[in-house]
Lab assay of single mutants.
Amino acid sequence: GFTKEQQRLGIPKDPRQWTETHVRDWVMWAVNEFSLKGVDFQKFCMNGAALCALGKDCFLELAPDFVGDILWEHLEILQKE
């Protein structure tokens, strides 16, 4: 899971503390893990605080249908851990 990747890359547990690099690493991991298609990494050029502050509607505009939902749900789980 993502926990191993977080440990390997030194990504903080709390997504709100992520840098732009951490956000990119997470999106890249999720794309590979969940076989997601059509993700534009440029749209995720922000730090974790900005990403978490978007709200669901704005977040879902960053990625194609269903893909955004998967990313959003995973981000929500990470914020609760």
Rank of each mutant, 00 (worst) to 15 (best):
G1M: 07
G1K: 15
G1Q: 06
F2Y: 08
F2E: 05
T3A: 12
T3I: 14
K4G: 11
Q6H: 07
Q6N: 08
Q6W: 09
Q7W: 09
R8A: 11
R8E: 10
R8M: 08
L9K: 08
L9H: 07
L9D: 06
G10R: 11
G10F: 05
I11N: 06
I11Y: 07
I11T: 07
P12D: 05
P12H: 05
K13Y: 06
K13Q: 11
D14I: 02
D14M: 04
D14K: 03
D14W: 03
R16H: 15
Q17K: 13
W18G: 00
T21P: 07
T21M: 11
H22D: 11
V23C: 03
V23H: 01
D25P: 00
D25R: 13
V27G: 02
M28Q: 14
W29G: 04
A30M: 13
N32A: 14
S35K: 13
K37E: 15
G38T: 07
G38K: 11
V39R: 02
D40V: 07
D40Y: 03
D40F: 02
Q42L: 05
F44W: 08
F44C: 00
C45V: 11
C45M: 13
M46H: 04
M46V: 07
G48K: 01
A49D: 12
A49W: 06
A49E: 14
A50H: 10
L51R: 02
C52N: 04
C52A: 06
A53Q: 10
A53T: 12
L54R: 07
K56Y: 09
K56V: 03
K56W: 02
D57W: 04
D57F: 06
F59G: 00
F59D: 02
F59S: 01
L60E: 09
L60F: 10
L62P: 00
L62K: 07
A63I: 12
A63E: 03
A63H: 10
P64V: 01
D65F: 07
D65G: 14
D65Y: 12
D65W: 05
V67D: 08
V67R: 08
G68W: 03
G68S: 09
D69P: 14
D69Y: 12
D69M: 11
I70D: 04
L71M: 08
W72G: 02
W72T: 00
E73L: 06
H74N: 12
H74I: 03
L75Y: 03
E76Y: 15
E76G: 12
I77D: 12
I77V: 15
L78I: 10
L78P: 04
L78N: 02
